[in-house]
């Protein structure tokens, strides 16, 4: 079907015609003929498909006219095996790379913010390949909340050590470690900023995917 032409003009086997004319390929025919494939049969059959050009509203996967009846039924959408395999292969590498950007922020471009965003992007990638709901079940809420809260607490704690030692807030030289300036900064970047950014970005992603609560438009995916 040409995207610019009204559906049905150029594809006679699909659109809402009487079942006697279109034969077995009819979409949305009488329920008695189609059997289990017509979950949305009666309602969808009454709606004109209309113009499906630029910017038209999604009208449902039961109107994929180029798929035959057999292909359409029972397979609404399956995750792509190719994408899943590629993400499986790429995700460990990218996760390691995000950690590298975080840990090596002192010697090359990058730091906690960028590294945390990359670690979050790994989870986003997995969620797009394997489905958001299964990723949400795999990643527990307590991990995300723990990372976010722990990051803020570690950052504030490192700052308060300087205050407790008689210096100023975030004065790293009072930390009881060798090379306190360098490793204090690394600690703030690695244990403070990176976990906050990563967990909050992942959390925002899941929150926006779930949508507002108490809302009938909330899809249960």
């Amino acid at each position: 079907m040409s995207r610019d032409a009204p559906a049905g003009d150029d594809d006679p086997a699909t659109e809402n015609g009487p079942a006697t004319e279109n034969g077995p390929a009819t979409e949305n025919g009488p329920a008695t003929e189609n059997g289990p494939a017509t979950e949305n049969g009666p309602t969808a059959a009454d709606e004109p498909t209309g113009h499906r050009g630029f910017g038209t509203e999604y009208s449902g996967h039961e109107e994929r006219p180029h798929l035959s009846e057999v292909e359409r039924q029972g397979t609404p959408y399956t995750e792509s095996q190719v994408i899943m395999t590629t993400v499986k292969a790429v995700a460990p590498f990218v996760f390691t790379y995000g950690l590298f950007i975080t840990f090596h922020g002192g010697g090359s471009p990058g730091g906690g913010f960028q590294g945390g965003a990359i670690v979050a992007a790994v989870v986003l990638m997995i969620a797009f390949a394997f489905g958001i709901e299964s990723t949400r079940e795999w990643l527990s809420n307590s991990v995300l909340v723990g990372l976010a809260v722990g990051g803020v607490l570690v950052f504030a704690g490192i700052g308060l050590v300087g205050l407790a030692g008689g210096g100023t807030f975030l004065d790293y030289s009072f930390l009881p470690i060798p090379e306190p300036m360098k490793y204090g900064m690394e600690g703030v970047e690695i244990l403070g900023i990176a976990p906050i950014v990563a967990s909050v970005l992942i959390g925002l992603f899941f929150l926006l995917a779930a949508g507002p609560a108490d809302d009938e438009t909330e899809v249960s995916e």
Partner: peptide, 20 residues
């Protein structure tokens, strides 16, 4: 690795979306 996969994802999305 990723470029052909992205092209696959786009072509698949186009097919699912009803592009003939």
């Amino acid at each position: 690795v990723t470029n052909p996969t992205a092209a696959h994802a786009i072509a698949r999305a186009a097919f699912e979306d009803g592009n003939v």
